[in-house]
């Protein structure tokens, strides 16, 4: 595999934005320190292993907090580096109200994950990015994503069970440690303070896309193979488009299990 592109410059910029907000940014308690504590943390919050979660839907009536609704601003970023000095391991920053202090609100949302990777560690960048969604891995936590956008619903029950940004940040950090042996350090930032604050990360996200675009190497596996029963597609002028869509079905089914 080709060497991963890194985002040192973007990490520095993201941190400069956070620092620029000074005391307004809270540093949340990370819910574990040792390896053993991570295991008991995962059990306590019900964090499923990769590929083992159940598809989750949180309906509006069961929703306690909605982050990054399609009508609000949202952004997601996963930035990595081989320079461990850039990352403060097991650190969670929050700018804006925490989940349990939102009172059923709809909030804009930025979720930023910063990773230090072991030198020479090689991985499909797509999987590094998709791990941030914790798809189906946390009870009462529903996530929907578009490129650059992230829409989260947290159920009332999840809130009662103690889900907050400290737990969510902990779950993200734990998930990255678990899923990628090459992740040495992980740091997370959440922004719910306002649309303008979230928007400050937009240009970083745009740059990231360009850099990562040259790098993506996706491998398709044979599960989720598709057979079209309805028609003979051989003479169809749109065959190529359909073939592409079949690939997407495979990718999506694959993604569901991740």
């Amino acid at each position: 595999m080709t060497e991963l592109a890194v985002f040192d410059k973007q990490i520095r910029r993201a941190k400069a934005i956070l620092e620029g907000w000074g005391g307004a940014v809270e540093h949340l308690q990370v819910p574990f320190t040792t390896r053993e504590e991570i295991e008991s943390f995962k059990r306590r919050v019900g964090l499923a292993q990769r590929k083992e979660g159940k598809p989750t839907i949180v309906m509006a009536e069961d929703t306690a907090v909605e982050l990054g609704h399609p009508r609000d601003t949202s952004i997601n970023l996963v930035l990595w580096t081989f320079n461990p000095e850039l990352i403060e391991d097991r650190t969670i920053h929050l700018y804006g109200p925490d989940l349990d202090k939102t009172n059923g609100a709809r909030l804009p949302y930025a979720q930023i994950i910063l990773l230090a990777l072991k030198k020479g560690f090689s991985v499909d960048p797509f999987s590094l990015e998709s791990a941030q969604f914790l798809s189906n891995r946390l009870p009462g936590y529903m996530v929907r994503m578009l490129p650059g956008r992230l829409w989260v619903r947290v159920s009332r029950q999840a809130l009662l069970d103690g889900l907050n940004f400290s737990v969510l940040g902990g779950a993200l950090i734990a998930a990255y440690y678990d899923d990628f042996p090459g992740v040495e350090k992980a740091e997370v930032a959440f922004v719910t303070a306002g649309n303008d604050m979230v928007k400050e990360f937009v240009s970083i996200a745009a740059e990231t896309k360009i850099i990562a675009g040259n790098n993506k190497k996706l491998t398709l596996v044979g599960d989720g193979e598709y057979e079209c029963e309805d028609l003979n597609c051989d003479d169809c002028g749109e065959r190529e488009v359909c073939d592409d869509i079949r690939d997407i079905i495979i990718l999506r089914r694959k993604g569901k299990k991740e």
Binding site: R144, P147, I245, L251
Partner: peptide, 24 residues
């Protein structure tokens, strides 16, 4: 269909993830 027509492999992965967003 429109985004697939525009092509690109990266797009495919993104569309795969986007279907649930759109349905919701």
């Amino acid at each position: 269909i429109r985004s697939v027509r525009k092509g690109g492999r990266k797009t495919k992965a993104q569309i795969a993830g986007a279907v649930d967003y759109k349905i919701m």
